[in-house]
Nucleic acid binder design. Structure first.
Lengths: 143, 143
DNA sequence: GGTTATTGGTTTGATATGTAACTAACAACC
DNA sequence: GGTTGTTAGTTACATATCAAACCAATAACC
């Protein structure tokens, strides 16, 4: 069919999104089954767990997530008692998000699992490959 | 916060999905703006355009898409007169999907744009990087 | 100090997605 | 030739997502 030079299986956006889906799938089950969390929820949890308390806006920026998504994830996490909010006194529009003790436990658990899962993935690559891979993905992510 | 060894920005599923999103974004506008197509729709279109007529089932397998998604995409593409279906005589459960003349024109246009877009992305990498990248992504995709 | 603009966050309504149940065509078995 | 199983594709319903409108707090300007 038409131009044989174009190979769909080497088209970067396509290949990337397939790889992303495949690699997410294996990890999903941990946060879904164990804690009934959604993808965006664990992302928010991870950001808070890894980088400490911050405002919803900050999460949006760090994680490149839209504010409506974050808003809903925060509500869900709050309902599960994984995080709590506190309005800032000097500017009552901002609210600081912090993990509860329970949330921190969950984060620690998932973080450990993530580390193991990542190690398993990484084991398929040589250190050089891994390095190139990270570098390339980083370049792509930044526009 | 807790274990400083775990770096979210190197967690493969996370990094991959961000890169995938970023790289898709730039290409989206072509099929969205020009032809009002959705992601799944262009995937189906591309598979038919690139690999010729096939059944919906075959598209599912090749593109790793769920049959309901394909079903809906096919209907949408049919409505736009980009493809047509024909029941197979020897087994009336199967229907062969083929691009219409119009669909082929659209495919050719998008395929050209994809090639250019891909070249632009690829220009940021050395051939070696590109090779490693493809190899790694391929490994990840296959489990 | 009242008007206008901006900003952090939420809500709403239209659209997309995933899961499971469904239909229709065929095959296999007796 | 009727029962049972399987397969290609669709439908229905519940859920997730996106965009745009919205609200409330602050800032900026006069």
């Amino acid at each position: 069919m038409s131009n044989p030079e174009f190979n769909l299986d080497q088209f970067l956006p396509y290949v990337l999104s397939r790889a992303a889906e495949a690699s997410s799938l294996g990890f999903q089950k941990f946060y879904r089954q164990r804690y009934g969390m959604l993808r965006t929820e664990w992302r928010v949890l991870f950001h808070l767990g890894r980088y400490g308390d911050m405002t919803a806006k900050a999460v949006c920026e760090r994680a490149s997530l839209h504010k409506t998504k974050v808003s809903r994830a925060v509500r869900a996490l709050e309902k599960k008692r994984f995080l709590s909010r506190t309005r800032q006194e000097h500017d009552r529009r901002h609210e600081t998000l912090s993990l509860t003790r329970h949330g921190l436990v969950v984060y620690t658990d998932l973080q450990q699992l993530a580390k193991e899962y990542d190690a398993k993935l990484a084991s398929r690559f040589t250190p050089q490959e891994r390095e190139v891979l990270n570098r390339c993905l980083d370049k792509i992510t930044k526009l």
